[in-house]
Nucleic acid binder design. Structure first.
Lengths: 245, 245
DNA sequence: TGCTCTGGCTTGTTTGTACAAGTTCGCCTA
DNA sequence: TAGGCGAACTTGTACAAACAAGCCAGAGCA
C-alpha cells in the first residue's frame, strides 16, 4: 500500500470515528505533512482521495472541511452484486434461468465492439438477498469470454470473483445508465411484483483493464430494495443526467 | 485557466474529435510533456482529469487508452435542472405550486444541520421540458436562505443561477440518493401519469462552499424522461449501491 | 516453431522547492 | 462602532529529479 493511501486510510478512519465531525476543519497540509513525516505532495494525494470519495471538501485559501462520515467502497461494490451484498451483511444468492449463444444484435455489436453477427452469450439471472428475489439480470457476454462463463456453476454466487479466479479477468471500467421503468410480465413474475410496478433499471457496459468490452447488462431492481448513492462537488464528478432515450 | 486544464481541454477535444478513437493509445506522458513544454507532473494532472471523467483509463506500465469520447459536464448538470436542460437543447420552465414556512421536522434538522424546530421553507415546484411536465420537486430550504428564495419569481427558470446572482450563493457539494418509486396521487396528477406508475426519485442534500447545508429535496422524474449516467473505474468512483431504506 | 527472458519503455510514488491566489482575522482608523 | 487594510496562513499550480513497479516486444534458446 502506497504511503498516500495509508495516510488517506488513517484520516478516513479518524473521520468515520468522529474525531473530525461533519463541518469540522481538517489539519492543514503542512501540519499533516509534519505529523506523518511525508512531503506535502504526498499529503495532497491522500486528501485528494478523500475529496474524490466526497468525505471532505476544499477551497483555495481555506482549511479543508469534513462533508460526510460514511465510507463507501467504490467500484467493486457498484459492479458486483455479491461483493456489495456481503459487505452490507446480506446473504446473496442467484440462479441462472437461461443461457444461450446467439448472434449479436447491431446495438450489441456497437456496445461490445464486436463485428456484426459475431456470437455472444445471453444469460438471464435472478438474484436474491436473504432469499428474497430483488434483481433480474439480463447480461450479454462477448464471445471470447463465453466459454469461461458457461463453465460457471449456475448457482454461482459471485460471477465477478469466479471469472477472476478462473481466467484472471478483471472488470476495470464501466458505464452505467440508471432510470426507472415499469415491470414487464417476465420481470413481474420473477420478482414477485405486479406487472407495471416500478423497477430501478441499471444498464451497464463493462470492460477489462485493456479497455476491451466484456459484457453489457440490463439489471432491474425491485423498488425499495436498493438505492444508488453519490456524493459530488463542483470539481469533478462523473454522474450526469441525460435525456430519456 | 490553469496550464493542466488547458492541456486536458486540448486532449479532450482531440478525443472527442476522433484523433484518438476508442481503444487507441494516448501518447506517453514524456511525449506530452515535450509537446506542451510542461513538466511531467503537470501532464499527469491533465490526464488525471480525463480519467476522472471516464474518458481514458490507465494501468501502470502500459500506455493510457481511450475508453469513451462523449464529454459530460459534471456537477452543474447534475444539480441545476435548468442548466442541464439548456445544455441539452431543451427549453426548461417551472412553476412554484406552493411555498410556505414551517418548523423543520427532526429528520430535516439532521440533514440540514439545524436546531430542532428551527424554521424552514418548503417549496413544491413542477418542472417542464419543452412544455411537458417531467419533474415534481419538493424542496426544503434552511431558514437563513429562505428570504432570498421567497424573493424569486415563481416562474423562475433557474433557481441556482438566480440565487447566485442575488446573494452570491454557490451550491458546491451534494449528496444524492437515487431509487424508483410508484407515483402517489399528487405526483400522478401533476405529471399526468397514472397513480402507481414508475418514477425515478432523486433525494439530495446540497451545501455551499463552506459546507453549510442549504437545501434538501425530493425530486421525482416521470419514467422515460431522464436517465442518470455514470462512468467509473477500479480506482475511485463515488457512486455506490445501498440497501433499500 | 514455440518458449523464456531480458532490456527498454511507461506509469506510479515520493520528495523538495517556489510562487500564485484566496481566506481569515485582528488591528487600525474614521 | 463599523468598516477597511493588511499580514499570516492555507490551498492551488508548476517544475525538477529519482526510483519503483508493471508491461511489452524482440532477442535468444531449445
Amino acid at each position: 500500500m502506497a504511503r498516500y493511501e495509508q495516510i488517506a486510510s488513517d484520516l478516513r478512519d479518524a473521520i468515520v470515528r468522529g474525531d473530525y465531525p461533519i463541518g469540522a476543519q481538517l489539519p492543514s497540509e503542512a501540519e499533516l505533512a509534519l505529523r506523518y513525516s511525508a512531503a506535502r505532495g504526498t499529503v495532497r494525494q491522500a486528501v485528494a482521495l478523500l475529496a474524490a470519495e466526497g468525505l471532505v471538501g476544499s477551497r483555495q485559501g481555506a482549511r479543508r472541511i469534513v462533508l460526510g462520515s460514511e465510507r463507501s467502497q467504490s467500484f467493486a461494490e457498484l459492479h458486483s452484486f455479491a461483493q456489495w451484498a456481503r459487505s452490507m451483511g446480506y446473504r446473496a444468492s442467484g440462479t441462472v434461468l437461461s443461457s444461450r449463444r446467439r448472434p449479436c444484435t447491431p446495438a450489441e455489436a456497437v456496445r461490445l465492439s464486436l463485428e456484426p453477427g459475431e456470437e455472444v452469450l445471453a444469460v438471464l439471472r435472478l438474484r436474491r438477498l436473504d432469499g428474497e428475489p430483488v434483481l433480474v439480470e439480463r447480461t450479454v457476454y462477448a464471445g471470447w469470454i463465453a466459454p469461461a462463463v458457461e463453465r460457471l456453476d449456475p448457482e454461482c454466487e459471485s460471477v465477478t470473483q469466479e471469472l477472476y479466479e478462473s481466467v484472471g479477468l478483471v472488470f476495470a471500467y464501466g458505464e452505467h445508465l440508471i432510470d426507472a421503468i415499469a415491470a414487464g410480465s417476465e420481470d413481474a413474475r420473477l420478482l414477485g411484483v405486479r406487472r407495471g410496478s416500478p423497477l430501478l433499471r441499471q444498464r451497464r457496459t463493462t470492460t477489462n483493464q485493456e479497455g476491451r468490452p466484456v459484457e453489457c447488462s440490463d439489471d432491474r431492481y425491485r423498488a425499495g430494495s436498493v438505492t444508488f448513492s453519490i456524493r459530488n462537488s463542483t470539481s469533478a464528478n462523473p454522474l450526469v443526467r441525460r435525456a430519456g432515450d
